[in-house]
């Protein structure tokens, strides 16, 4: 009897704390998979795992970071299963050669006003897709979803310092890609 009350309460509590993060999980899954059916399946897997392990969730802790951690792990497991080399690309992401300072300063030197005005709807998505997974993840979490560094570190299971360096490189790469897209828009307008 007691167990029934506790268990039933636990699941309704799950809905109470987890349901508000469903859209966030869905968006994150979309950015990882680029495919709606796969994204839904990934979120469902996350959802089921979270439901089953909800007793391990500390009510005082951060639910969205907890859910995103499950989502990230489920996604990485899928990649591993498909034989994709995530670990290597993860290391490359933190390697010093990934983005050089010169590249960063090229992006810095662009006239900001022009650059921002030419970013069209869908450009950010398009640019984001070109980023290696670790960069895509960190930008998605920190910039698009507004997680704090601490939350991002929890989800990515890495030190805050790594979040900072990865985010910095990710933004540089993304900016560079957006500048390229902006130039393409400019070019096509002139050529018409």
């Amino acid at each position: 009897m007691l167990r029934w009350i506790r268990d039933a309460g636990q699941v309704s509590e799950f809905e109470g704390v987890a349901l508000v993060h469903l859209d966030l999980l869905y968006r994150a899954a979309l950015r990882l998979t680029h495919n709606r059916a796969e994204a839904e399946d990934l979120v469902q897997e996350t959802w089921l795992r979270a439901l089953r392990h909800f007793d391990q969730f500390d009510p005082g802790s951060n639910c969205r970071a907890w859910l995103l951690t499950i989502l990230r792990n489920a996604f990485l497991n899928r990649l591993r299963r498909e034989g994709r080399e995530i670990l290597e690309s993860d290391m490359a992401a933190d390697g010093s050669g990934a983005v050089r300072l010169e590249e960063a300063s090229v992006a810095h030197s662009n006239p900001e006003e022009d650059f921002f005005q030419t970013v069209l709807h869908g450009d950010v998505d398009r640019a984001l897709r070109t980023l290696p997974l670790p960069f895509r993840l960190v930008v998605t979490l920190a910039d698009l979803e507004g997680l704090t560094y601490k939350e991002v570190a929890q989800v990515l299971d890495c030190p805050i310092g790594t979040v900072m360096s990865r985010l910095s490189r990710a933004r540089q790469l993304l900016r560079k890609e957006l500048v390229t897209l902006a130039r393409e828009h400019g070019y096509s307008e002139e050529s018409r």
Partner: peptide, 14 residues
């Protein structure tokens, strides 16, 4: 402003 641009991206619902 770059950060703001990213944060202002449309947020799709499930």
């Amino acid at each position: 402003r770059f950060r703001q641009l990213l944060r202002q991206q449309p947020k799709e619902a499930a």
